[in-house]
Design a protein around this nucleic acid. Structure first.
Lengths: 247, 247
DNA sequence: ACCGGTAGACTGGTCTGACCAGTAAACCAG
DNA sequence: CTGGTTTACTGGTCAGACCAGTCTACCGGT
């Protein structure tokens, strides 16, 4: 005989559930407005603080947004990966995840993204990648910040070319966290111009492979470049975690 | 000249930030207790409703848990993928992420996990995998629920063998969401015994490859099995998103 | 006819103070 | 040592109030 722990259902929880259900079922669509808090407290027959706690939860989940003074009431938002992004970032920061794990994960994600992008890219994606690469060329002379910005845009364009939002989001998150961990080391790099030229050449090669729909080559190039550029920041004894991915 | 939209910082938001910061920086560890709401409202110099809204946000992010009557105060939780899971599930329900994207992502993650597990596994990991496989064998006669449970344990053991928590967590999340999307279809499968025997045979083959340290083979088997088992639930015109991963 | 300013009716954000049901631990009687 | 009772808390909820801000409709000047 199995029993389950009994937990009282909070009032604010049931308010959340009802609103969530209305959104998921399509009864309320993105762009629609919820009644005002004072109106909701009448409809749900609860106090305003209860309504507000429910709205806070929904707002934390990026499902609604409310602005003081707006007589139309809280706005229902379209589902967005923003909440996913935040949770993933929190996990990465909290779970004391080291550079070697992040790099390993990024090699997995980027490698697969390049593979898929090469085989699924459209002409539009290629144009976008060309534009990003051109920005990188300009960035070399403009400065490191501009170059980095263009570099990020290039990687995001590749992720988007896979058509899979999960790859876009996780890639973005992992790249961000990796950068946070080594940005101070990059600040003190000796010859950043040579560094940028190297990266630029690598990206041109990658774009060539993607244009040729050679996913295998694009993937191999991406993973190798990650290893070459970042492995130096990983302790020697942990690099064996990365090498199996280079096969 | 570029301007940014100006938005007032809510009081509850700054409370959230301070507590978050304390958790991330390690000043507060999982298992520790926060002061009571009445104590927090003194320390932050805000009203109780503000404190409560902040705690609700943190609770929605699965960072704390509070129970009425507990004189030790709200408990700080260990970072868990639960929030990630919820956000991803919400996205999937809102139709921004379909089964094809989830499956593609899972093929990427599982494929890489198998590759890495085969080359990094220790004898302990092999023993764990053997145990999980034995549970699956027993599960075939016990019932579908038991079998599924053992199946999950097997996959988690493989993820753990990579040594990378990111692979463990994302794998867990994606597997969960995929299962939720097709569980009703699995419920009505005609011959579940044959299904289970198929899966069992496949897992035995995978474990063999991992024991041989043949990462390439383990990875190929895993991705192929995913495609064979789940592609039928993906619309025909979207299967081309998956096939590039089978090369 | 147009326009700028303004009055008023709202909105959400915050605070105060109160009550309740429930917990935990100390206390106390058997 | 055990089982109840007391007590001092906890979080959950509500009511009512005030504020700063926004929107809209109205109004007077041009």
């Amino acid at each position: 005989m199995e029993f389950e722990p009994v937990a009282p259902v909070r009032a604010y929880q049931r308010v959340v559930e009802q609103i969530e259900e209305a959104v998921f079922s399509g009864r309320i669509k993105p762009g629609d407005r919820l009644p005002s808090e004072r109106e909701l407290m009448v409809q749900f027959d609860v106090g305003r603080s209860t309504v507000r706690e429910a709205l806070r939860v929904l707002q934390a989940a990026e499902m609604i947004r409310s602005r003081p003074g707006d007589p139309r009431g809280p706005e229902v938002l379209a589902a967005s990966p923003a909440a996913l992004h935040r949770s993933m970032h929190r996990l990465a920061r909290a779970d004391h995840i080291g550079l070697s794990e992040l790099l390993q994960f990024r090699m997995v994600l980027d490698g697969s993204a390049h593979l898929l992008a090469a085989q699924l890219r459209t002409e539009d994606h290629l144009a976008e990648l060309d534009a990003a690469l051109e920005s990188m060329r300009e960035g070399v002379s403009k400065g490191f910040a501009e170059f980095s910005h263009a570099d990020v845009a290039f990687h995001e364009a590749i992720a988007r070319a896979t058509g899979n939002p999960l790859l876009v989001i996780s890639g973005e998150v992992v790249r961000g966290v990796v950068l946070e961990l080594i940005e101070d080391k990059l600040e003190h790099a000796d010859d950043r111009t040579a560094l940028m030229r190297n990266w630029l050449a690598h990206h041109e090669e990658v774009l060539g492979a993607i244009r040729d729909s050679d996913g295998e080559r694009a993937s191999r190039l991406a993973k190798q470049a990650l290893y070459d550029n970042y492995a130096e920041y990983v302790p020697e004894e942990q690099r064996r975690l990365l090498r199996p991915l280079l096969a």
